[in-house]
Design a protein around this nucleic acid. Structure first.
Lengths: 209, 209
DNA sequence: TATTGGACCTACTGTCAGTAGGTTACTGGA
DNA sequence: TCCAGTAACCTACTGACAGTAGGTCCAATA
């Protein structure tokens, strides 16, 4: 009754092409990353993302559950790529010092290549409270875990908790330095040197030189 | 026409007490900080803040322009307090090393006392894009500026840009360490030692010990 | 050919930031 | 004591957007 126009259906399925789940998912992620980067998390509308993909909004919810979930998926992808990049960079280093240098250089270069996405995906990741926050924390742990792994190899006698503190500290420092250096047009190489100066050599030692 | 009930007015002004602008402003800030801390930026509703203050929503907009502006004002206040606290802590230090130690200790303790507010106000400060973002960046510069000032006194021959990088790096490291240590129940004192180990002594030197 | 299920849609609801336009209480001067 | 003028305050709305209900359509299988 009530004359609901009872025409929920799709009509001629408009211009949309059907697609297997995995492919559509990848496509959605790519578009979402773009829109989040352009407009920021709050500014990005699910309607716009859906429209750009060429699909209706409920599809996004079908695949990612919520706006939060969509952001979370984007962040996961970027972070995973980042971890790969740094792992590769560190792999062939002859000394621990060189490993740290190469790792950070790779990090800064990665941020260069993913600048827009980085700014939003990682800096606004605390926007949420739901599953995304948890997922993001998990990924951060993956990151610091990697560093702890490297440090442990070098100093097996230092307590794990202490090494974890160092890892957290490194991540925080390099994230902020990454933001600062893009704003001030400082090269990745130079930024890495600054970081090594403080982190490896130590400020106290610098004074002595 | 159109029977708009034409009764915009306030009725018996409900339970609200009138108050001079400055006082109401302080009160609003206090309540807002509370609500932001409880619910996060996105979760906090202007309606709720207004209600808790005992005032109507348009008043908040009259005083702060937007939700963004309200957050910005809260952050400004907290950051100013933080700067005061660290300045005081550093003031009487006999050596640069001790200054750095005391400054960071004060920072960690400050975060302890303002834990909830800190988490939201500073970690979600990138949510916005409007005037708040600019204001917050200005305040961050104030912070790093303070550190640059300290470093300059110690090393006048190092280029300012380099010192600024070190300051950024320090801020990033300590902010993240602050988050990590509250989650892992590490004391302020111990966190400070970790930080000094890396930042002052340097990881490379640690290896030699 | 009948049927199942996966991909997809339109049209709605509820919530919330922000606003239009009006009222009421306090101030100082005549 | 009365009366501006202004500062503090209100109700009731709009528009935007996250999230949902409930349906259609097509392809592969039985």
């Amino acid at each position: 009754m009530t004359d609901t126009t009872a025409r929920g259906g799709a009509g001629p399925t408009r211009g949309t092409r059907r697609m297997p789940r995995a492919e559509r998912e990848r496509q959605m992620l790519a578009v979402a990353e773009e829109v989040f980067a352009e407009r920021g998390y709050a500014g990005a509308a699910m309607d716009e993302i859906a429209e750009r993909v060429g699909v209706s909004k409920p599809m996004l919810y079908e695949y990612f559950g919520s706006k939060d979930g969509l952001l979370s998926a984007c962040v996961s992808r970027v972070r995973t790529e980042l971890l790969d990049a740094t792992r590769r960079a560190v792999a062939g280093a002859p000394t621990p010092e060189e490993a740290m240098r190469r790792g950070h250089l790779a990090f800064f270069r990665f941020v260069d290549d993913h600048a827009a996405a980085w700014a939003v995906l990682l800096h606004e990741s605390r926007v949420t409270d739901g599953p995304a926050a948890a997922a993001i924390d998990a990924i951060r742990e993956q990151q610091t875990g990697f560093i702890v792994e490297l440090l442990t190899a070098q100093k097996p006698d230092v307590p794990r908790r202490e090494l974890e503190a160092y890892a957290q500290l490194l991540v925080g420092a390099s994230e902020r330095l990454a933001v600062w250096r893009t704003e001030h047009r400082v090269s990745a190489k130079r930024a890495t040197e600054y970081l090594m100066n403080v982190m490896w050599t130590g400020l106290g030692r610098l004074a002595a030189i």
